[in-house]
Nucleic acid binder design. Structure first.
Lengths: 133, 133
DNA sequence: GATACCGGTATCCTTTAGGATAGTAGTATC
DNA sequence: GATACTACTATCCTAAAGGATACCGGTATC
């Protein structure tokens, strides 16, 4: 469990009850393992982009707005390797390729939800503090 | 809300009920905003390292194991700028400097918890699949 | 006087991420 | 026959991240 501050001191810093340093190493390792596969600017946004169902290459590119095909291709391959995504080719004319999330990618749902909500609130905070100046 | 697959097809991919593309843009923006301040290899592990209370420079370095002082110094400055951390100097001999989490950093608690738990489980999965080979 | 600890800086370097631009094969459209 | 679309790949390049190593002033310790 994360520990919580019980007070706030004059400098606005949290004051902590005590100091139990042990299981901290496990927590650090967990976070680092997560970051290892979710690294970079694009992996998580890409997963979000596919949340509503299978998406084609160009669709994803449009959804992200500013990713180049080279980078998108690389990121999708890495997501495939880590079993977050399945690539499917349909022999239509012209050929259709879709990318869709795997069940394993759904284990990330809570992480994504929390991160997304935090991001939205963080932006609000930034905007508010800009106005206050 | 994140949508969930209702079935799994032969390839192990999730099958999605429908396709509602709208609020997806907001979700992507939220995640990108979050990643913008939490970027890189070190920010989140550093925050974890300070979760148990104020830490000194060398303590943090030891907790992370393989971060160089230059990088640590830079990361701590960025965390300070984003109001996740407060730096405090005590005029002891020799001088003592501590870094501690702010109340605002606690808004990240859930994100951290989810990410850490996911990371731990992900590692277990990887280890298990290695054994299976 | 030599060594060690603390909290960093300074300098240099390599690696990686990521972007810009162009091009590809195949089909379809005008 | 020119142009456009899809799903990429290829080449080149820049900027940033991050690591290695050395060093600094101040104090304390052996």
């Amino acid at each position: 469990m994360l520990r919580r501050a019980t007070e706030i001191d004059e400098d606005g810093a949290a004051v902590w009850p005590q100091h139990t340093a042990e299981a901290c190493g496990i927590a650090i390792a967990g976070v680092r393992d997560a970051l290892y596969v979710l690294n970079g600017k694009w992996k998580l946004p890409l997963i979000v982009a596919m949340t509503n169902g299978p998406q084609r290459f160009k669709d994803i590119q449009r959804a992200l707005g500013d990713i180049t095909p080279k980078v998108l291709s690389k990121e999708l391959k890495e997501l495939e390797l880590n079993e977050f995504v399945v690539r499917k080719v349909y022999s239509t004319t012209p050929v259709t390729v879709t990318y869709q999330l795997t069940p394993y990618s759904q284990t990330l749902d809570k992480v994504m939800q929390e991160l997304r909500d935090w991001g939205v609130k963080h932006r609000q905070r930034i905007v508010a503090s800009r106005k206050a100046r």
